[in-house]
Design a protein around this nucleic acid. Sequence first.
RNA 1: GCCGAUGUAGCUCAGUGGUAGAGCAAUAGUUUUGUAAACUAUAGGUCGUCAGUUCAAUCCUGACCAUCGGCUCCA
Length: 655
Amino acid sequence: MSEINVKYGENSKQFEGSVSVFDVIKSFDRNASKKALAGKVNGEEYDLDRELPALTDEVISVEPIMPDTRDGLELLRHSTAHLLAAAILDLYPGTQLGVGPALMEDPRYGFYYDIIAPAPISEDDLPKIEKRMSQMTKQNLKYRRDVVSKKEILDIFKERSEPLKCELIDEKVEGDASIYHIDNSPFIDFCLGPHVPHTGKLKAFKLLAISGAYWKGDAEREQMQRIYGTAFFSQDELDKWVKQREEAALRDHRKLGQELDLFSIHDDYGQGLILWHPKGGIIRMEMENFLKEKLKEHDYSFVYTPHIAKRELWNISGHEQNYADSMFAPTMIEDTEFRLKPMNCPFHIGIYKSRPRSYRDLPQRYSELGTVYRAELSGTLHGLMRVRGFTVDDAHLFVRPDQVQKEMGDCLDFAIEVFNTYGFEKINFELSVRGDNKEKYLGADEDWENAENSLATALKNRSIEYERIEDEAAFYGPKIDIKIEDVIGRTWQLGTIQIDFNLPERFELEFKGEDNELHRPVMVHRALFGSVERFFGVLIEHFAGAFPFWLSPVQIAVLPITDRINDYAASIAEELKQAGFRVELNERSDKIGAKIREATVQKVPFMLILGDQELEEDKVAVRDRTKGDQGTFSLEEFIEKARSLRDSRALENNL
RNA sequence: GCCGAUGUAGCUCAGUGGUAGAGCAAUAGUUUUGUAAACUAUAGGUCGUCAGUUCAAUCCUGACCAUCGGCUCCA
């Protein structure tokens, strides 16, 4: 039997026989968790499960470290949240604490802590808090864990006048509870851990924002202040992240919408109501044209319906009962009440119901760019992403039960084609199903099973990876949500394909089957962009305002170098217009550098720079907005290449 | 809607208890320019709105409106 002398921090111990790195760490620190620890042996990193070398006469030093992994980062951030709370208690005694988790999914933040301070904390206080945190990291204060009985922990928090914590503990704890302290700090939290060994491990963190949050996310409960921050293993990583965040801010669609003159929102006209300017309008027209092309290919029909309907219709559809909060108040005309539509479905149903349908008529696929109005709370409005009036690229399919699967598949193909054209390669599909909690869902078990199977099979047949989410379906049917990931890794919920068992019942939809009996059709709601406004917002940010050629509001800037060239430039511009391009001629007497700068800032894909030389040779000098000078082309050659870029809806402007 | 912050020219922002400035943009003139910003001049604002305090308010106080960061909600 060999003996191993191990040094662990300031302590040492003797082990016999085979012993792993984790065994050693655990023997010194009973709270050590494999979840977010690795070991160092004589300064070198070792796997936790690796056995220590059995050398005699040599003292082996072991220390736990956080591994550079997601779990390690989570631990780091959670520990930083505790440090934040400790610093706040130091600076603002009497502060009540809520919860303070690490955030690993949200790219904006790394952790938060909810608090109720004696006096509200403002953004200006963050540097002070951050400074206090930094001081505490220099003191290498230990994180200590204790296990106490439920009564003890409740007494602790009662004495500290923290009723919210008591409420939480009362709900969560059965038997003993785990609490964490930080040395030299009044801070105690009810927490399972694990945590870093001491505050010295926290080397790179930053407080980011302060905002409101409800206790337990319930708008009826206490309003708390939420302090957001993030933490990384190293200052380098933190700096990189901060830089990325700044770059993302430059892509903000509201900022670009202003700079590129795409759209505006005016208080005088109403919050959440979008004015599409000419340059935004032309992009929308291109988007709609492309969509219409695809709808024709997929055999959809085009319908148009009004923006308001009698209140009674919303009673039949159930919106009066379930959706009234989101609807604008009724308007009385003579003796009849009308309401703005929050959805298009009832109107498409009206078209279906306008005559008896035979099984031969199905499927019916009605599409419409239907503008709807929703009375969203003012605090939720956000640029183009959340508005009060918006246009849904809506479609409703009325299908026989035996057609559901094929139609679902076609919807998926459609969605993928469209999103790929816009350059979204990463598309996430979520299948939301009923789950075990069956009472709250409407419709027969058999229908649900068939519908869920059809959706799943359609996904599987296309080898689409998807996430199945139990108990997330709409009350009226299962659905597939389509989320896209943009170039900087943010995901956006856009499209949705939903099966509906409710409205066909409510509106008593029927078709005459082969058997001469009446049957109920299946109704499918389907939208790809979700809202044209939101999709436009996502596109602006995705492309950072530099739209591909086919979408660019101004596709070609014609820039004469001197006034002598203006006539030649005008004739070139005219020919390009004849060829169907969107052209802007800049005849001002600015220097060419200024004209180039202006067109580049406006993200015009191509600039044609025309001087004496081009006039003489009857050519155009082409400049790309990002790649610079592309050399000279004959006008015919340039038009041909540009036409191919446009007609193929190419994402890159390669000539 | 709730919590916090913000609101000055078309845009980005300075500024002061004694009725306001800069840069860019706009307009006019000069310049005729070779691949990211020529020069000069002119014009442009009830300092978010309404009250209050004051001899005097863009500035201090309050209410309201809107915007921003979140929460809740959602396409």
